[in-house]
């Protein structure tokens, strides 16, 4: 089971890189409302996934998992927000930070159920696809 969880983390990294290069080609054509929503969705989603998966892998280390998920949220929100504007960077930063603080508690309250992680992964995957479709259709 731990191999599956590690491969899910790797899948999320690859997915984020694909979405980043997809958006990087079209970043001049995306307005700031869609940019703000993209920064919030990507930062919060990656932070909550990393927190839930890591607290299921290492339930003894609450401190380190919180720090890692907060750093993931801050970095993802800032990088995806910096595609557009300084204010989208601020929005992505604060949303990733709040989601990253909340994520290990959500994962601990779910009490290591695999179904919850799979449904959450599916939700984030679908919302990334929606985001890429609308980033294409509004330009």
């Amino acid at each position: 089971m731990s191999l599956w969880l590690n491969s899910l983390l790797y899948t999320n990294l690859v997915l984020a890189i694909i979405v980043f290069f997809y958006l990087h080609r079209r970043r001049k054509l995306i307005g700031f409302h869609l940019g703000m929503n993209i920064a919030m969705v990507v930062g919060g989603g990656l932070a909550i996934l990393t927190g839930v998966i890591l607290i299921t892998l290492y339930p003894l280390h609450f401190m380190e998992v919180t720090v890692l998920s907060v750093l993931t949220g801050i970095l993802a929100g800032s990088i995806f927000g910096a595609l557009f504007d300084y204010q989208t960077l601020l929005t992505g930063y604060i949303n990733g930070l709040m989601m990253g603080i909340m994520a290990p508690m959500v994962g601990a309250a779910a009490s290591e159920s695999m179904v919850f992680i799979i449904v959450l992964q599916l939700f984030i995957f679908i919302i990334f696809i929606i985001l890429m479709v609308f980033a294409k259709s509004t330009t």
Partner: peptide
């Protein structure tokens, strides 16, 4: 939760 992880169902830190 940071003071007492057992209220979230976690084992003691």
């Amino acid at each position: 939760v940071a003071k007492d992880p057992s209220i979230c169902g976690l084992p003691a830190s």
